[in-house]
Design a protein around this nucleic acid. Sequence first.
DNA 1: GAGTAGCTGATTGTATACAAAAAAACCAAC
DNA 2: GTTGGTTTTTTTGTATACAATCAGCTACTC
Lengths: 242, 242
Amino acid sequence: MNQPLQKISTENGRKTTGTQDELVYAHIFDAILEQRLAPGTKLNEESLGEIFGVSRTIIRRALSRLGHEQVVVLRPNRGAVVASPSIEEARQIVFARRIVEKAVTELAIENAQPAQLVQMKQLVVDEQSCFARGDRGAGIRLSGEFHLQLAIMANNPPLLSFQRSLVSQCSLIIAQYESGGKSHCSYDEHFELIDAIEQRDKQKAVRLMMHHLDHIEHKLSLDETGASDDLHAVFSNVVGKK
Amino acid sequence: MNQPLQKISTENGRKTTGTQDELVYAHIFDAILEQRLAPGTKLNEESLGEIFGVSRTIIRRALSRLGHEQVVVLRPNRGAVVASPSIEEARQIVFARRIVEKAVTELAIENAQPAQLVQMKQLVVDEQSCFARGDRGAGIRLSGEFHLQLAIMANNPPLLSFQRSLVSQCSLIIAQYESGGKSHCSYDEHFELIDAIEQRDKQKAVRLMMHHLDHIEHKLSLDETGASDDLHAVFSNVVGKK
DNA sequence: GAGTAGCTGATTGTATACAAAAAAACCAAC
DNA sequence: GTTGGTTTTTTTGTATACAATCAGCTACTC
């Protein structure tokens, strides 16, 4: 027991501080976004502790952080589960993202450094190659990182941290609702967006961004008629019947 | 030792779930917003544990949550201190609030329930009476709660949670920079805002809100020339001199 | 006397033991 | 076979013990 975490951090190209709870957090986070953990999955503290070779204390910290970002939901005395936002919740998240992405896009245009733009292009190339080789999970995660990078360019830490939470939740939504075949939030649009930013064309960039979010939201409507596991929603037609 | 926390929760009119860490969190939070804890104050885990009659485990959870809301800053291996945002950081926070408050105001107008408006009016009355009797700290906190209530009316949970963090940080800023005499973010403006919302006048409401935030930002400029404890900022004029 | 190395006390980080709560299994009655 | 309650087991919540780290001090070197 208690073998150290060793360099599991190098699995993806993310910078890690090296503290244990950071690592555990990052791993669970990635697993959720890459859909190796399905929405609704129970996250048992002791099992996770054994998997990562750390005590429940560390797992607990990681879960609590994930809970604060709304990627998992913490139910008092009942443990944590991977969040599974309803369509209504998904709509609200996308709405909030519209607000934030608009501001972030405009700020990014004002503050973009050439080196950052180069980095972003590389990110989209990586994203593209993920989808090309069929690694949908990693693709969704990189797509999210693109939007995070944009918020970094915007140079407003509070907006960045909100963006982080929203992007995570959106990735979850995409993973949950964008079933199978349909190609998702496409990297083409990301390339176009970078162009618009390079040209410092705020109007165009914002328009592209909104269009981008329309795509996500559109997928939700398609699924609207699907089955639900919310009994109240399912039986809302008989309310007051008794 | 370990006398229970008992009903310290009734000190202010806030609803509490009753779990210990919630209580501790709320108490520290209030203490910071009401300036009983000055920015920069070290928050010793053991001392807090003794004060609240709980173990460090609980204190740690509360601090971690406060840290995530950026009301305290957690320095690894060096403990937590009450945040003391620089003027630059304060500007960024206010900027983010502009974005969110605009969206929240518009949503609130769309979704406002009559009962909620009544509640908000009462809140402003309470706020007013706090300032009238010289309880500046509680006044600042109630003023923040006004803006939170607005976000509740807006009925978008993600925006609400971001608003919570922003309002907290703003209260901290107000407490820190709005020195002495000058009457702060005034309740008159809150009354006007409620009126505009009742009349469903989006343009007017948003205009009032922006005006409101101008006031906060204006205070920052006044302080700009003040002393700083950021050595880089202080000596920025000699950069490259050597 | 300035600067550095090592020591000491205090504080945070982590693991673990135990208590409390919830879930599961079980059994009885109908 | 299903329902209702009781016991057992699992899982979470909290306190605490111990390890690792840091800040401040002393003493030593140059």
